[in-house]
Simulated assay, not measured.
Amino acid sequence: MARKWGGGWMRQALQAASLRRWSRLATEAPGMALPELRNQRRAARRLRARLDDLLHVAEERLALPLTGNQAFPRPADADWAWRPELWRGPLPQPGIASVPEKAKLGAEATLFHDCPRSEITLRQIRNLREADVAPYGLRLDVFRFSGSYLSLAVDLPAEACAGLSRRHLIRAQTIVEMEKPLEIFARLNIRHGPNTEQIVRELPLNAEEIAVEFDLAYTRLNEKRVEGMWLDLIFEGPEMNEVILRDLTFSRSPRAQF
């Protein structure tokens, strides 16, 4: 089997040799014969055009949020924090047109509705704004809407349920953009044995920080039988609107004891 000589050191050596050459030509330019100087100027302009192309692409890509990023503000005492895959990295199937009544996007998100004729599209998008921390966002386009409900369910991982107790607060935080105002409700569902606890909060869309907390102290949670947890984002009056969820993150913290 032929041995592959490391492209790294060879590439560095070639780049160093090219840099030395152009440095030498720049030094010699004041005394260079005019025909030769004209040739070198032509070559330098061609090289500069390619370098400008490389810099343009590199600066654009390196300015984007990093794929897989899990960094986001969270309570100092959080014992678990998480950003779902849809906002963290590229999905194999980035979007769905004419979304059916129950459609999964990735392994963790499912869109539900009851429209007899779907005029709904769902697409993962790349976040490009300087303020974005999440690499990806989710765009929901709704045209004509004849159903009674539209909701996005996000399954939380098993780690969120491990050691879950009524002493915990679950926090959900998001960044939302929309074409026109609408109401969005967040419903936390916790399945324990044959029962499911549900807590509903309205997202404060006019607040600077769009976050809600679910206090499990007010539930009848059977801590020994927790089997799963998910969040429903429920969109009220979504017709003729575009909603972009730039980010969605979760964290879990023990409630302060008094």
Rank of each mutant, 00 (worst) to 15 (best):
S253Y: 10
Q173R: 15
F143Y: 09
G193C: 02
P75W: 00
T174Y: 05
D79I: 04
R61T: 14
A43Y: 13
P94G: 13
R38A: 15
A256R: 15
A26F: 02
V200P: 07
R21N: 05
D77M: 08
L203G: 04
P84Q: 01
W230R: 04
A103K: 06
R220A: 10
I234V: 07
A160M: 08
H192T: 02
G89Q: 13
A17R: 03
R225G: 05
D141V: 08
E239W: 05
L182H: 03
L111F: 07
P75C: 03
Q124E: 12
L203P: 04
I199C: 09
L55P: 08
D232K: 00
R50T: 12
R123S: 15
V200C: 07
K4R: 06
E177Y: 12
R41M: 13
A29V: 00
P181L: 09
P73G: 02
A107C: 09
L156I: 00
A17W: 01
Q40D: 11
E119W: 10
A49H: 14
Q173D: 12
E209S: 14
G89I: 06
L245S: 05
L51Q: 15
S23H: 04
F143E: 14
E159W: 04
T67E: 15
T27Q: 12
Y149H: 02
A63K: 10
A26N: 10
G31V: 06
I184N: 07
L233H: 06
I244L: 14
S148F: 00
I234Y: 02
A16S: 04
G137V: 03
A13C: 03
A33M: 09
D53L: 13
Q173F: 05
I244T: 15
R38H: 13
L152R: 00
A211P: 02
V142Q: 00
D53T: 13
P90G: 02
S253Q: 14
C115F: 09
P204R: 04
P73Y: 03
N241E: 04
R166P: 05
L47P: 08
R166D: 07
D52P: 06
A207W: 05
G7S: 01
L64T: 08
W80T: 07
V133E: 14
F258I: 09
R225L: 09
G137D: 08
D132A: 15
H113A: 10
S148E: 03
T67N: 11
V57N: 11
L51G: 12
F214E: 09
W82Y: 12
E108P: 08
G8P: 01
D132E: 15
E101P: 11
P75V: 00
N241F: 01
Y136N: 13
M10R: 15
P84M: 03
P100Y: 04
E223H: 06
W9V: 11
E213W: 12
L205P: 00
G6V: 04
A158G: 07
Q40I: 10
R61I: 11
A17T: 03
E36Y: 09
E108H: 15
G8M: 01
S165N: 06
P30K: 02
G137P: 09
P181H: 10
P254T: 09
N195M: 14
R21S: 05
L169M: 08
R166H: 06
S146T: 02
G68P: 07
F214P: 12
